[in-house]
Amino acid sequence: MTHHTAEHHDPAMNECIDNCTRCHAICLETINYCLGKGGRHAEPQHIGLMGVCADICATSADAMLRGVSAHTATCGACAEICRQCAESCAAMGDDPEMQRCADMCRRCAGSCQRMASGA
Rank of each mutant, 00 (worst) to 15 (best):
C23P: 04
A77M: 07
E7S: 15
E43T: 08
T30Q: 11
A25Y: 00
C16D: 06
I47V: 15
C101K: 09
A6C: 13
C53Y: 01
M1P: 15
G38N: 12
G48N: 14
I31C: 14
C34D: 14
Q113C: 05
D18W: 08
C78I: 04
E29I: 01
I31V: 15
D55S: 13
A42S: 15
E15D: 08
D10C: 07
M50P: 11
K37R: 15
C112W: 05
A70N: 10
D62F: 01
T21I: 01
A90N: 05
M64V: 06
M104Y: 04
M1N: 15
R107M: 08
N19G: 07
M115T: 06
C16E: 06
C112V: 09
I17V: 09
C112S: 07
H41M: 12
E43L: 14
G39Y: 04
R114P: 05
D18E: 08
C27R: 09
M98C: 14
C101D: 11
G51W: 05
A25F: 01
L49E: 10
T59Y: 05
Q45W: 09
H24W: 08
M13R: 10
T2I: 08
D94W: 00
Q113N: 13
R22V: 08
C75Y: 03
C75W: 04
G110H: 08
E87I: 07
G38Q: 10
P44D: 12
A73R: 06
D103C: 06
A79E: 00
D103S: 09
Q99H: 14
I47R: 00
A116C: 05
Q45G: 07
A70P: 06
